[in-house]
């Protein structure tokens, strides 16, 4: 039995001939915030998708609580904010959350849904269809959708995209709360300043290879603009 919440064991992922992830090994302990950093096309999203069970590694294995990822029993323990927002444009904000609450078998879902709509500032728009929402409002609803079933593992791919200052603060508060509730958070982002402020552990990917794996340091937080020069 592994002590890590998530373990990557020598994983490779090929898209055709192209290796998007090359021999990556990483142990993510339970109850911390891990930042997955790297330039565009480094392989961050591919790794998150393999952890979520949306892609199978070409080689190696991804373990969740010691057993291979992608099993149905892991699905309820993972919440994900992906590039696509996983929302239905023709349903209202509330209907979207109801739909996902039913998929995750949530009891007393109406109360939870109302709480989350309030929390992400969409209560006034609860009965508006999602196609009327701005990008930022969609992203807030996406965050509510990912957290609705209180998953022990949160996978966030560029979660700050399109959020205004207030919503960015809200997300940081939610992530710090998740950490205090002992949830495991893996966040991939280009937004170094925000990510370095909250992450306890860093993993840096460069062209599919893991080039840095270690704890976050104050020097990184203080000078995020120099981050990539310091670690390479």
């Amino acid at each position: 039995m592994s002590a890590s919440a998530i373990s990557l064991r020598g994983i490779w992922k090929f898209f055709g001939e192209y290796p998007a992830v090359r021999d990556a090994s990483l142990d993510i302990p339970a109850g911390g915030i891990v930042a997955l950093l790297g330039r565009n096309g480094a392989g961050k999203t591919t790794i998150l998708r393999m952890i979520a069970g949306l892609l199978r590694p070409s080689r190696g294995e991804v373990l969740i609580d010691g057993s291979p990822a992608g099993q149905q029993r892991h699905a309820a323990s993972i919440g994900m904010v992906g590039h696509g927002q996983w929302l239905y444009d023709d349903l209202t904000a509330r209907e979207n959350l109801h739909f996902f609450a039913r998929l995750y078998d949530l009891s007393s879902s109406s109360e939870k849904i109302d709480q989350w709509l309030e929390e992400v500032g969409l209560w006034t728009f609860r009965d508006a269809r999602v196609h009327q929402f701005s990008r930022g409002m969609r992203q807030r609803l996406t965050i509510a959708r990912a957290l609705l079933h209180a998953p022990p593992i949160l996978l966030l791919d560029e979660p700050w995209t399109s959020l205004d200052d207030r919503a960015m603060d809200l997300l940081s508060v939610l992530l710090l709360r998740a950490r205090s509730e002992n949830r495991t958070v893996v966040v991939s982002s280009h937004q170094l300043r925000e990510t370095l402020q909250i992450a306890g552990h860093l993993a840096v990917i460069d062209r599919g290879r893991l080039i840095f794996d270690g704890p976050n340091r104050d020097e990184f937080r203080e000078a995020p603009h120099n981050f990539y020069q310091r670690i390479t």
Binding site: I78, M80, L87
Partner: peptide, 15 residues
């Protein structure tokens, strides 16, 4: 396929 909703279904506990 809009908003990658298929991913949401595959990642959920839905059989």
């Amino acid at each position: 396929s809009a908003n990658d909703c298929l991913d949401a279904l595959v990642a959920s506990p839905l059989s």
